[in-house]
């Protein structure tokens, strides 16, 4: 009886020993693999703050005059190898979060046209159209397109204005559909309008929230590399 118990115990211990040894080997190997991957794939911190890699914009955009919305991904446009000295003329990104029903965004439509006319050849501008979850804000794609193209549609500016009466020119840059505000949440944007300027390599260079009071044009003049005339 005692022998049988001892034998069973021996068997159990033996099984445990092999399993434990295998466990140590696999755990050691797995730890090494995970550490190596994490250490050797240099993924920057992703976030909307200056110095961080801008979060991706993945969804659909509408360009001026287009009949349909097309797929877009910000990271497809980013050049991770960009260097300001060797390629100063590369286009930076200006991302504006806006809501067609937000009065401040309504007023900013004109200044945005000014930025485009002054810096259009140095910037890829993208307006991320959101629909804030507050009363009288109920944008849809039709309203976004009307706002962008300055076309006649009653409903902009909290439903009080015809979209064609906003200031500025028709906006000849992409409008990104974030009406469900998922991208806005990812970026941690608290309100509209909100502007972020991004370097060609995707690094956030200027965040409106971190530069209260500074004009966007002034920031662009300060930051954009000087391009020598040919």
């Amino acid at each position: 009886m005692n022998n049988a118990r001892r034998n069973r115990s021996f068997l159990t211990d033996e099984d445990g020993s092999a399993a434990t040894t295998a466990g140590f080997v696999i755990a050691g190997g797995l730890t090494f693999i995970l550490l190596a991957v994490v250490l050797f794939t240099d993924v920057p911190i992703i976030g909307p703050n200056e110095g961080e890699m801008a979060p991706n914009l993945e969804g659909q955009i509408h360009t001026l005059g287009a009949e349909s919305w097309t797929n877009f991904e910000l990271y497809d446009e980013v050049d991770g190898t960009w260097d300001a000295e060797s390629n100063p003329e590369a286009k930076w990104f200006l991302i504006q979060f806006m809501d067609t029903d937000c009065p401040h965004c309504w007023n900013e439509a004109g200044p945005m046209s000014d930025i485009e006319s002054n810096f259009g050849d140095r910037l890829t501008m993208i307006s991320v159209a959101v629909s804030l979850n507050i009363p009288s804000h109920d944008s849809d794609r039709e309203e976004v397109v009307a706002f962008q193209e300055k076309a006649s549609l009653m409903g902009c500016n909290s439903g009080n204005s015809d979209c064609s009466t906003r200031s500025g020119e028709p906006h000849d840059w992409a409008y990104f559909d974030d009406l469900d505000v998922t991208i806005m949440d990812t970026w941690g944007v608290q309100g509209t309008p909100f502007i972020v300027i991004i370097k060609p390599d995707g690094e956030v260079a200027w965040n409106q929230g971190q530069n209260q009071g500074q004009e966007i044009m002034e920031a662009l003049v300060e930051m954009l590399p000087v391009v020598e005339a040919a």
Binding site: E14, D15, A18, A19, T21, A22, I26, G29, L30, I33
Partner: peptide, 23 residues
């Protein structure tokens, strides 16, 4: 798949080290 193959690796290594394991 790294995690999955690690578990499978543990199973195979346990059997390799102790083919007569009761389990």
């Amino acid at each position: 798949f790294i995690l999955l193959f690690s578990i499978l690796g543990w199973i195979a290594l346990t059997l390799h080290l102790d083919p007569k394991a009761s389990n």
